[in-house]
Amino acid sequence: MIFRAVEDADLIRQAARGNVESYNLLVSRWEKRVYNYLLRITSNREDALDLTQDVFLKAYQNLRKLDDPARFAAWLYRIAHNEAFSMFRKRRPETDVDELEPEATETKVTVGGSSVFPMELSLAVSGALGRLSAEQREAVVLKVYQGFKFEEMAEILSCPVSTIKSRLYTALELLKTDLAPVKGRVS
């Protein structure tokens, strides 16, 4: 556990009373994680940045509605999830959210200058994530990249744990098919 001189809960309480400096400190602790979560599910840096700003603004304006500061992370990601899927709906209102696909196939998320892993593997990962449904990809991002528990994911996505498990298991099977041989070949 990372020791922090001031806990998030204290910052949340101060920010809820209108202390902007406390909120800015809180934002600095979470902005990178939220941005990367949104980047993974939107596959677009501009969208991810815009959404991140919206998320933190909404979070600040609704901080008083957060009853338990310990649930801040799930609450924040819930806002981020809503903002992202709201954007998806606005852009393609005629499409069912279940069928939404990110722009990953057109604009690949890449990691520049990586000497440890080959570029083709990164592209393969981006492609594999892009082939998942929006819900499956989001489940993978929240679990694998963000490290949330099933219960927290259920709270963020507002669905039962069984649904979360189903999405994750299916996504893992698809990713395993796409990536495990690739990884094995590279190794």
């Binding site: 920010a15 902007v20 990691v111 990962v125 694998v144 395993k176």
Partner: peptide, 28 residues
């Protein structure tokens, strides 16, 4: 192996830091 492949996508730094000014319009 799948997990290792997924982690080839590393976290990116946010291109622009987010900070709020002390404006009443952002009041909680």
């Amino acid at each position: 192996l799948t997990e290792a492949a997924l982690f080839t996508l590393r976290e990116e730094e946010i291109p622009q830091r987010i900070a709020f000014v002390s404006d009443k319009i952002f009041e909680p």
